[in-house]
Write a protein that binds this DNA or RNA. Structure first.
Lengths: 229, 229
DNA sequence: ACCTGAACACCGTTCAAGT
DNA sequence: ACCTGAACACCGTTCAAGT
C-alpha cells in the first residue's frame, strides 16, 4: 500500500482554505489569540506550512480583511442617492458585527486591500452618480471615515455588561468626581431603548451620527459648496 | 567605603519616572517596539523592577494615556459655546499629534482612565452650559467619538509619502480598476493645499467633519430635538 | 526541489532562590 | 522583607538538514 489508510487524507492547503480558517478561528477565539502557530494547529499542519500561502502574518491579516469586506452586499439596484448609500453602509455594519475583530484589523492596515479599494470605489461612484462634485465627495469620504464600513471609533469599548446593581453603585461613586458623565449614563440607563435597559444603544448612535453627516452633505451639495475658490 | 563611587547613583524609580520614560520611548521608537524589557533597559533596571510600579503592561499603557491626556489644555476661560468646544478639541489634536501612538493606545483601552473621564466630564459640561439637553449632549458625544480627542479613524493610514513620479505611475495603473478613487486622488494632488502638493490635508479634513457635526448639533438644539417622545 | 524540525531572537510574567 | 536571575510558556520567522 503506497498510502496507509489510517493516515487521514487531509484536504490540501490552499490560500483560500487558510483564510477561511483564519476568519473562523478569529471569530471563535478572538484576534489576540490568533497566532500563526495556533492557526496551523487548527488546520493540522506544521506552522511553516502556512508560509507557502502567506508571506508573513500581515499578509494573512490583509487576506482576512478582504474576505470580510467581500461579504458586504453590492449596492441595491433599486435605491438611489443617499438612501442607497445609507442602506449599503448599514449592510456593511451587519457584516462587520459578525466579525467583531475586523474593525480593529482594518484600522491597523497601512495600505488599502483590493476589496477595500473596490468597496470605496463603488461607494464614491454612488455619490458621483447622485450629482456630488469630486471635491465634496472627497471630503465626505474623510468625514465618514470608518463609518463607511459600518463601525465608528468610540473613545473606549463599551464596558462589558455588569450587574445593574454593581453598575448603579459604580455610578454613585463617580457622581461627585464626574457629575456630567454620570448624568448622561443614568439617562441612557432609563431610556429603555437598549435591550437590557442599561448602557447605550449602539445602533441608534451609529445611525444618529451617520444621518447627521449625510444631512450635512446634502445641504452642502444643495448650495453648491466648494472647498477652494 | 559603604557605597563605591564608581557605581552611578541612579535616580530611584518612581511610577511617574516610569511613565515619563515610557511616553518618551514610545515617541522615539514607536509603540510596537515598546516592551517591558526595552523600557527597563532604557531606565537601567532589571525588567522585573518595573512590576513594582505597574501591575502589568496594560496598566503601563493606561498610565501613558493619562499622561498624554493630561497635556490637553483646560477650556479657555474666555470662549463659550461651540467656539470653546471647537478650540479645545483642536488643542487636543495638537497634543495627540505630538504622540502619534496615543490614538491607537486610547482605542485599545477597554475602560476609561481617570484623565479621560475628567476630560469627557468637562467637555460634556461645556455642552450643558451652552443649553444642550442631557439627551442631545449624549448623542453628540457618540457622534464626535474619537474626534473629541482630536483624531478620527480613517479607513487606512495615509500611505507614507512616496516620490511623486512613483505615485503618479501607481495612480495610472489603478485608473481602470478604481476610476472613482483615482479621480479623487488626482484632484487632491492638484489642490495645492497640502504641503508637498500631494495627498490629503489631514487638518482640513478634520475640521471639515468636525464643523459638519457641530453645525448639525446646533441645528438640532435650535429646533428642540429629542431622541424619544 | 520540496518540506519541516530545530533554532533564533524576541515577548510578558511567574516563581523560587538569594540577600 | 525586599530584590532579581532564571525559567516558563508563548511569539513570528530563519535556516539548514533531511527526504
Amino acid at each position: 500500500m503506497t498510502r496507509p489508510t489510517e493516515t487521514p487524507r487531509r484536504t490540501p492547503l490552499s490560500t483560500e482554505r487558510v483564510l477561511r480558517a483564519a476568519v473562523a478561528l478569529a471569530d471563535t477565539i478572538g484576534i489576540e489569540a490568533l497566532s500563526m502557530r495556533r492557526l496551523s494547529q487548527e488546520l493540522g499542519v506544521v506552522p511553516m506550512a502556512l508560509y507557502k500561502h502567506v508571506a508573513h502574518k500581515e499578509e494573512l491579516l490583509d487576506g482576512m480583511v478582504d474576505a470580510v469586506v467581500g461579504e458586504i452586499d453590492p449596492p441595491r439596484s433599486g435605491a438611489q442617492g443617499m438612501t442607497a448609500v445609507r442602506g449599503r453602509i448599514l449592510s456593511a455594519r451587519r457584516v462587520l458585527s459578525r466579525h467583531p475583530w475586523a474593525s480593529r484589523v482594518i484600522e491597523s492596515r497601512t495600505a488599502p486591500t483590493p476589496a477595500l479599494l473596490a468597496y470605496m470605489d463603488s461607494m464614491i461612484g454612488m455619490f458621483r452618480a447622485d450629482g456630488y462634485s469630486v471635491d465634496l465627495t472627497h471630503h465626505a469620504m474623510h468625514a465618514l471615515g470608518s463609518r463607511l464600513l459600518g463601525f465608528s471609533q468610540e473613545l473606549f469599548d463599551q464596558s462589558p455588561d455588569v450587574d445593574p446593581g454593581v453598575r448603579e453603585a459604580g455610578l454613585r461613586a463617580m457622581a461627585t468626581a464626574y457629575p456630567h458623565v454620570v448624568e448622561i449614563a443614568v439617562r441612557a440607563d432609563h431610556d429603555g431603548r437598549s435591550v437590557v435597559g442599561q448602557g447605550c444603544d449602539d445602533q441608534f448612535e451609529f445611525e444618529f451620527s451617520l444621518d447627521l453627516l449625510l444631512d450635512g452633505f446634502e445641504r452642502l451639495r444643495a448650495r453648491g459648496w466648494r472647498s477652494t475658490g
